[in-house]
Amino acid sequence: MTDRQARLRPGVMALCGAVGLSLALTGCGGGSDDARPQTAPSAASTVSPVASASPADPDAATKAAVLASYTAMWVEQMKAYRKASPDGTKLDDYATLDALSAFERDLAHMKKNNTVIRGELGHEPEVTALDVDAKLPTATVEDCIDLSKWQTLDTKTNKTIPLPTAQPLRYVATATVERWDDNRWMVTEYEPDGSRTC
């Protein structure tokens, strides 16, 4: 692991001005914790990776590997959000640094607010940038997040918490994915942007 990989970078989550998934998770509560956008998926999301590569694209296999890691992260993240806990998941096999820290904050926030995720979260991920020649190969993934089948459940009342009226049902999230020394692609940053609809 390099020094860059070992250190935690400043958080990448947007603050209270942007619309993020924390609103979907908590039903837009009044506390400052409730205003922080989160990155939660539901457990049964629909992921349709798009490698954005033509058949002649020399980077097609690399883009497919990036999307495979990104998709695997979502699968594990959804397992965690269904129970508001990372226990029994392999989330840290695919996400690390800022991304993993943000997901762990989401889970702690959900546990504190007695919420879990039900329904589905749609995805349309695409590799939009790739630098395999860098010392630390890096890719950028843009994903169109679809909340139309998303549900946040209050575990105390067993009732669904409605999405805030300002929450867009489809918006863009951007992930940074790095290839580490063991040849694994790891999601190191994940940032939802409620101001960019898709």
Rank of each mutant, 00 (worst) to 15 (best):
Ala65Phe: 01
Gln38His: 10
Gln38Asp: 09
Ala129Phe: 11
Thr197Pro: 01
Thr26Cys: 06
Leu67Ile: 07
Pro10Tyr: 04
Ser85Asn: 07
Gly30Thr: 11
Ala60Asn: 09
Ala64Trp: 05
Arg105Ala: 09
Lys135Ser: 15
Glu104Trp: 01
Val177Met: 01
Trp150Asp: 09
Pro10Trp: 02
Val12Lys: 10
Thr39Phe: 02
Trp74Gln: 15
Leu107Arg: 08
Thr62Pro: 00
Pro41Lys: 02
Ala35Trp: 02
Arg196Pro: 00
Pro192Gln: 00
Thr128Glu: 06
Thr155Lys: 03
Gly20Val: 03
Leu130Tyr: 01
Gln151Phe: 07
Asp57Leu: 10
Cys198Val: 08
Asp181Met: 02
Asn183Cys: 02
Ser195Gln: 09
His123Leu: 08
Lys112Asn: 14
Asp133Tyr: 04
Thr89Ser: 12
Gly11Met: 02
Thr152Asn: 12
Val50Tyr: 11
Gly11Pro: 05
Asp59Asn: 11
Pro37His: 01
His109Ser: 14
Asp92Val: 12
Phe103Ile: 14
Asp146Tyr: 04
Ala14Ser: 07
Pro168Tyr: 13
Asp181Arg: 09
Ala129Val: 03
Ala65His: 03
Leu21Trp: 00
Arg170Pro: 01
Arg36Asp: 07
Ala51Cys: 14
Asp92Pro: 09
Asp57Cys: 08
Asp193Met: 05
Lys156Leu: 07
Ala134Asp: 10
Ala53Leu: 14
Ala166Tyr: 02
Asp154Arg: 07
Tyr190Gly: 04
Leu130Met: 03
Gly88Phe: 12
Asn183Asp: 14
Ala95Arg: 00
Ser32Cys: 10
Ala102Arg: 05
Thr115Pro: 02
Thr138Leu: 04
Glu142Ala: 07
Arg184Pro: 08
Asn183Thr: 15
Gly17Pro: 03
Val66Pro: 04
Gln77Arg: 08
Glu178Met: 04
Ser48Tyr: 05
Gly30Arg: 13
Gly119Leu: 08
Asp34Ser: 11
Ala43Asp: 13
Asn183Leu: 11
Lys156Arg: 14
Arg9His: 11
Ser42His: 01
Thr157Asn: 00
Leu107Glu: 03
Asp182Pro: 05
Thr188Ser: 09
Arg7Met: 05
Lys83Thr: 13
Lys83Val: 13
Ser22Asp: 02
Pro137Ile: 04
Val66Met: 03
Leu97Gly: 04
Pro168Met: 08
Trp180Ser: 03
Ser54Ile: 06
Asp182Cys: 13
Leu97Asn: 13
Leu23Glu: 10
Leu100Lys: 10
Ala61His: 01
Gly17Arg: 07
Pro41Ala: 07
Ala44Gln: 11
Arg7Tyr: 00
Ala60Arg: 14
Asn158Ala: 15
Ala18Arg: 01
Pro58Asp: 11
